[in-house]
Design a binder for these strands. Structure first.
Length: 203
DNA sequence: CTAAAGATGTCCT
DNA sequence: GGACATCTTTAGA
């Protein structure tokens, strides 16, 4: 994959209209975009290389499958917000909400290729292995300093946490498989990743 | 109220 | 390939 230079990076957050569409389509189109997290003076960045789509009705793997609850409320709200949930007693996972208000949907950000503030990410992750910084949903939130406080955060404001357009010239080689770590809904090929990219959680 | 599972990661064999 | 850490949420009694 082509490396990305500072000058190429947009600072304009993706608009609400980008998120307010079919969840599976948004999941696919988020590949190659850049996740940005401003944390004090630090700006952490990475190219999104792996995502998963979660719908509501008809998707038994989704938190929204059985209707709204306190935890999944953000999934039912407006598109373009962060849905951050805590799981396994120790991990956070980051999603972005999709679909119009009232219609649940979210895209899990599973992996990113770090491009900025790599030293800070290594510190946060307690490893020197570049590949291990964000090649999994909980590793990614640790590297990007994402936790509960960002649940419901509006990603279109360009503050704290947002996503900007990528600068890839070549078309991406996108693969899809079953989603990972679920027991139902395995028949839906809603995991998307950039083929051959070494920062994907699993090929 | 109680219990079981969970959109995971790490370390071990 | 498997155990285990660790605790919130949800479903069911």
């Amino acid at each position: 994959m082509r490396s990305i230079s500072q000058a190429d990076i947009s600072t304009v957050p993706l608009a609400r209209a980008f998120y307010e569409r079919d969840t599976v389509r948004v999941a696919r189109e988020l590949l190659g975009t850049i996740l940005v997290r401003t944390n004090g003076h630090t700006v952490l960045r990475g190219v999104i290389v792996e995502t998963e789509a979660y719908r509501g009705e008809g998707d038994p793997a989704s938190h929204a499958y059985r209707g709204p609850t306190k935890r999944n409320a953000v999934m039912f709200g407006p598109a373009g917000h962060a849905y951050v949930y805590f799981t396994y007693g120790m991990h956070y996972c980051l999603n972005v909400t999709t679909e119009p208000t009232g219609n649940p949907g979210a895209v899990l950000i599973r992996a990113a290729q770090p491009t900025s503030a790599i030293e800070q990410m290594k510190k946060r992750r307690r490893t020197d292995q570049l590949r291990d910084l964000a090649n999994g949903p909980a590793k990614l939130t640790q590297a990007f300093a994402v936790s509960r406080s960002l649940n419901g955060h509006d990603l279109t404001l360009g503050k704290k946490l947002f996503i900007v357009k990528g600068d890839s010239v070549e078309p991406l080689d996108i693969a899809s498989t079953s989603r990972i770590g679920i027991r139902v809904g395995l028949e839906k090929p809603w995991r998307f990743f950039i083929r051959e990219n070494p920062f994907v959680s699993k090929q």
